[in-house]
Simulated scan of single mutants.
Amino acid sequence: MRRAYSLEPAQLETYFSSWEEKWLTSEKDINNPKIPRSFVMDVGTLLYTDQRELDLAKAAAIRRAKTKASADRRAAKRKAQADLIGS
């Protein structure tokens, strides 16, 4: 863990209100709603840091590479399964 932030419910009220309104109008649950990291870092209280530099661009590049590698593995598995069925 690199950072930990704390936010009070009142600080998140805009998100809660938006999600509640969305639920009331659509009557569907919101699956895995997101709160932007930038909002948390700007508004939240920093509780913990590992004191290392936080390079969000580098972190995003690593996430993209891992996502692509995972997608490549899934595609290779599908191809291998299709080859087995076709043989």
Rank of each mutant, 00 (worst) to 15 (best):
D50F: 04
K68H: 10
T49W: 02
V43Q: 05
D50C: 02
F16D: 04
A61F: 01
K58F: 11
E21V: 07
P33D: 05
P9G: 09
R78M: 10
R3V: 05
S87M: 14
L54M: 13
R3W: 05
S18V: 06
G86H: 07
K22R: 12
G44Q: 03
A65F: 01
T49D: 12
I62H: 01
A82Q: 10
R63M: 04
S6I: 06
R63H: 09
K34Q: 09
I30Q: 02
D29M: 13
K68W: 06
R52W: 05
W19C: 00
T45E: 10
Q81G: 08
L24T: 12
R52L: 13
A61W: 00
F39A: 02
D83R: 09
L24H: 13
E53A: 14
K79W: 04
R78G: 03
E21H: 12
D50E: 02
L12M: 13
A69K: 05
S38T: 14
I85V: 15
L54F: 14
A80M: 09
A75I: 07
F16S: 08
L47Q: 04
K34N: 12
K28F: 07
A59Y: 00
S38G: 05
L54S: 10
R78H: 07
R3P: 02
Y5K: 01
R73D: 07
L46I: 05
T25L: 08
T67H: 03
R63A: 10
L7P: 01
M41T: 07
S17A: 15
M1V: 13
K22N: 08
L24N: 15
S17N: 14
D83F: 05
T67S: 09
L56P: 00
L84N: 08
S70T: 15
P33Q: 04
V43M: 06
E8V: 11
M1T: 10
L54V: 15
L12C: 12
T45D: 05
Q11P: 00
K28H: 07
I62N: 01
V40A: 06
S26T: 15
E27S: 15
A82M: 08
G44F: 01
E27D: 11
R2W: 08
D29Q: 09
P9V: 09
R78I: 06
I30V: 14
A71L: 11
V40K: 00
T49R: 04
A75Y: 02
D72L: 09
I35Y: 04
M41L: 09
G86D: 11
N31S: 15
A57E: 08
E21Q: 15
T14C: 04
N32K: 13
I85R: 12
